[in-house]
Every structure is written in structure tokens, then in C-alpha cells.
Nucleic acid binder design. Structure first.
Lengths: 126, 126
DNA sequence: TTGACAGTTGAACATAAATTCAATTATAAT
DNA sequence: ATTATAATTGAATTTATGTTCAACTGTCAA
């Protein structure tokens, strides 16, 4: 329990040992940024809907627009977003571009988050 | 392949069968919103750092402020955010509030997302 | 009971992200 | 070639989010 040296926080009593330990064990800043960016890609209901849809079947931009009742432009922007994060991939077929999920991680993460939400809901009710 | 009826998108040729199938299989809007909200909680580098820190040890607000070199106010706001999503919990100890992870889902999701990022990086290099 | 400190809170501000809009590219059909 | 359509793009706009700032609450110690 000592006074913190840093200029920003006005802490007098920090738990030195724990903080030192944690600092040592924590991931580097760049990796943590990457992780946050990964979640950012999933942190929007439009993109989540797109992913949930592509879990069921590959679809073209047009299909997704109709499905979500949104403009092709809005959808296309979000598709680029998801593609950049390598969550989806697109293949060209004539004038259309057919999109599908890039790999299985999305499905896995989806499963776990569903579980968490279910349990969190149960707790909040009980 | 028919003209879409909706007013917003200007689609002429949508793949009816697939869209219909997907619509049937997709989760309801509320659940999809909940999932997006869950990811929103993780979609910020400050919050990710907090979670990564709490994976290693429970910590008070002061500790986290010192660790991340940020004001207690900024940290506190984010802690409320994470608590609301039931990702962390806090217990009072004298003047301090000690925070820790709420359950194991966070750890699990973390693992998978790390895998995804590693693979995505490998691909982008190859 | 007064002062000091850990933590929280709400409003203001600053920044980032989503959607719209207009224009453009690429492909297919006439 | 010309036209039509799927999709993309960049800039403008709108909306959401993170941080700061100042004030406040609760707890401990003198």
C-alpha cells in the first residue's frame, strides 16, 4: 500500500504486489488492441444479423438487403467491415458477390456468448 | 430470383428460397441485440485491458487506474459498463471496492478470439 | 465531527462509428 | 456500343461512445 507515482491517477494506496504481478502477466498492448478490434467487428446489431444469416446460408448483398430491410450501400459497408476482420469472405458470381462465413471461430464464439447471455438473464430474474 | 417487395432496398433479383430459409432459421431480433450488446462490452481496449488484468488477479479501482495510467473516473465508468453486462463483479472492502471476473465465459471467449486473431494474422502474412 | 480518501455519478465535450447520398465500377444482356 | 443492374466507394451527416471535469457519497481515522 504505497502512493502511486504516476501523474494521472490520484491514488495513494495501491496494492503493489498484485499490480506488479498483473502487469507482468498481462498481454502486450498490441494484442489487446487486436482483441478489442475483433469484438468491435461483432459489436453492432446489423453485423450480428449478417453473421447470423450467413451461418444459415451463403447470400448475396441483395439478399441480405432484402432480409434486413436495409439499403445495399449500408450492407455493403458493413460487409467490407466484416471482411477486413476476416469474419466473412466473398466470391464473385457474374454480377453478384456471394458472401459466406470465413471460418468456424465465429460460430464458436457465438455459442459461448449465447450461453453467457442466457445465464446473465437467469441471474437478473432470480 | 424475383423482384423484392420492400421499399428500402432496390433489389430486383433476390434468391427467394435461401432468403426465406434463412429468415426462418435466424434468431429473433431481441436475442441478436443482446449478443451485439455483449460484444459491445468487449469492444474497447480499456475494457479489454481491465478484463485481462482481472483474469490475473482481483483489483481495486485504484490499482486498475495505476495499472492503466488512467483516471479513476474513466476506469469507474468502464467498470460500471462491464458490471452491467455481468462480466465483472465488485465487493466492498472498507473504503475500497474490489473487482473480479464474474464467470468463466469471458475467459473462454478470450481464448477463441485469440485463436482467430492468430490465424487471421498468419493468413494475411502468407 | 471533521478531514481525508476511495469510489461513483451526471453533464459537457471530443471522438469514433453507422447510415445516407451521390457517384462510380464491373458485369451481363440487348 | 448502349443500357441495366449488382455492388462498391467516399464524403456528408447523424448517432453513439469514451473521457474529462466537477460535484457528490460513503467510510475510515484523528
Amino acid at each position: 500500500m504505497t502512493k502511486c507515482k504516476c501523474a494521472i491517477c490520484d491514488c495513494n494506496t495501491i496494492h503493489d504486489e498484485q499490480v506488479k504481478l498483473v502487469k507482468k502477466k498481462m498481454l502486450d498492448d498490441e494484442s489487446l488492441m487486436d482483441i478489442a478490434d475483433f469484438y468491435k467487428a461483432l459489436a453492432d446489431s446489423t453485423r450480428i444479423k449478417i453473421i447470423n444469416a450467413l451461418e444459415k446460408s451463403e447470400l448475396c448483398v441483395c439478399d441480405i438487403s432484402a432480409l434486413l430491410n436495409m439499403t445495399k450501400s449500408a450492407i455493403s459497408h458493413q460487409l467490407q467491415n466484416l471482411k477486413e476482420m476476416r469474419l466473412i469472405k466473398g466470391r464473385k458470381s457474374g454480377k453478384e458477390v456471394i458472401y459466406s462465413l470465413a471460418d468456424d471461430h465465429v460460430r464458436q464464439v457465438f455459442e459461448i456468448s449465447m450461453q453467457h447471455i442466457k445465464e446473465a438473464k437467469r441471474e437478473s430474474k432470480g
